[in-house]
Amino acid sequence: MSRFASFSAGGETFYGAIIEGGAVALSPEFPQWPTLKDVIAADGLHTLAMAARNSEVTHSSFTYEIPIPAPEKIICVGVNFPDRNAEYKDGQEAPANMSLFVRFPRSFTGHGRALIRPKASDQLDYEGEIAVVIGKGGRHIPETEALSHVAALTLCNEGTLRDWVRHAKFNVTQGKNFDASGAMGPWLVPFTHPAQIEDVRLTTRVNGELRQDDRTGRMIFPVARQIAYISTFTTLVPGDIIVTGTPTGAGARLDPPQFLRPGDVVEVEAEGIGILRNTVEDEA
């Protein structure tokens, strides 16, 4: 399985392949593609895979960055699993259309780094999700063709400040965008077959305790539907990220609620992608 990551070492930022023993920096070989976003725009993941063959580790020690450093758009899908809809206890069936909101790149940190619990709130919560990276852009993309527009998959902990998503009547933006409150990574896995997303187990663990556990086959709005719907109102471009929804089991819904605290370890895992692992620290 090919895995491509953005990482930093020695004051420099690279992208490359993750192999046994560390990372292979490939960005110096492809100056025409400064970031993985540029690689995806040029349909270059296969070229990277070929370049990584028989390569030796260049960095055994490095820090993961979010895979796509500056996506034009990060669009998140809310309430996308049946049990998650039932958590609202409003007696309503799943809506006909999906709930969406946007996040900024600065609200995410990389694999192995700390989620930051801000000074403004002690209600930092986790949401384990799979994210899809758009490879071929477009507008009004038919649902039957939508998956052909996906370049890669990654993982997301869509960290949320629960009290701040309720600061206004119908606006969650502020509670979803505190700096480094979420994480993305560790790497991109090239998307080559619908089976990689259609019925995949997705779990979240906190300090080893299983909190979220569901399968993408139970999504109310499958990924192909998400791409078709979103591309109705906005042009998707290479490097855009769609965060596809979280299962039931977030800390706010436990009795009593269990929010993240400094020292906690959160692991989001999906079959065929890997594990996104982060600790938690208070804002300095």
Results as ranks from 00 to 15, higher is better:
Pro222Ser: 08
Thr63Ala: 14
Asp90Tyr: 04
Ala70Cys: 08
Ala195Cys: 02
Ser181Asn: 02
Phe101Val: 05
Val268Asp: 04
Ala252Gly: 06
Gln174Arg: 12
Glu56Tyr: 11
Asp38Trp: 05
Asp240Gln: 07
Tyr229Val: 10
Thr173Pro: 06
Ser148Tyr: 15
Asn171Gly: 09
Glu87Cys: 01
Lys176Cys: 05
Leu153Phe: 05
Ile18Tyr: 02
Gln212His: 06
Ala183Leu: 01
Tyr126Trp: 13
Asp199Glu: 03
Asp213Tyr: 06
Val133Glu: 09
Ile19Ala: 07
Ala183Pro: 02
Pro118Ala: 05
Phe191Pro: 05
Leu147Gly: 13
Gly135Ile: 05
Ser231Tyr: 01
Glu269Tyr: 00
Arg84Ser: 14
Thr232Gln: 15
Asp282Cys: 11
Ala94Trp: 01
Glu158Cys: 10
Gly159Met: 05
Thr35Ile: 07
Leu260Asn: 03
Thr279Trp: 04
Arg103Asn: 02
Val189Thr: 02
Gly10Phe: 03
Ile134Gln: 12
Ala250Ser: 14
Glu283Ile: 09
Pro142Phe: 02
Ser181Leu: 01
Arg253Glu: 14
Thr246Ala: 10
Arg225Asp: 10
Gly44Lys: 01
Glu145Met: 11
Glu267Trp: 00
Asp264Ser: 02
Val266Gly: 00
Leu254Trp: 02
Ile141Ser: 12
His193Ile: 11
Ala114Ile: 04
Ile242Leu: 14
Gly217Leu: 03
Gln123Val: 13
Ala42Cys: 03
Asp83Gly: 11
Val189Met: 04
Ala195Leu: 07
Ser181Lys: 04
Thr248Ile: 08
Met1Asn: 05
Thr58Cys: 12
Ala70Val: 09
Thr160Leu: 07
Asp122Ser: 15
Ser231Cys: 06
Pro28Glu: 07
Leu36Tyr: 08
Pro118Val: 10
Gln92Cys: 07
Ala70Ser: 14
Thr216Leu: 09
Gly185Cys: 07
Gly239Ser: 05
Val39Leu: 03
Ala49Thr: 14
Arg166Val: 04
Phe259Ile: 06
Val24Cys: 10
Thr248Val: 13
Ser61Arg: 15
Gly44His: 11
Ser6Cys: 08
Glu209Thr: 12
Gly217His: 05
Asp90His: 03
Glu72Ile: 09
Gly185Lys: 03
Leu36Arg: 09
Val189Ser: 03
Val268Gln: 01
Gln226Gly: 05
Thr192Ile: 04
Leu26Pro: 04
Gly16Ile: 09
Ser61Thr: 15
Arg261Gln: 11
Phe81Tyr: 15
Leu202Lys: 06
Ser8Gly: 14
Ile19Phe: 03
Val79Arg: 13
His59Trp: 12
Ile18Asn: 06
Gly137Ala: 02
Thr203Trp: 00
Ile241Gln: 08
Thr192Asn: 13
Val39Asp: 06
Asp213Leu: 03
Ser99Leu: 13
Glu56Arg: 15
Gln258His: 08
Val280His: 06
Gly217Val: 01
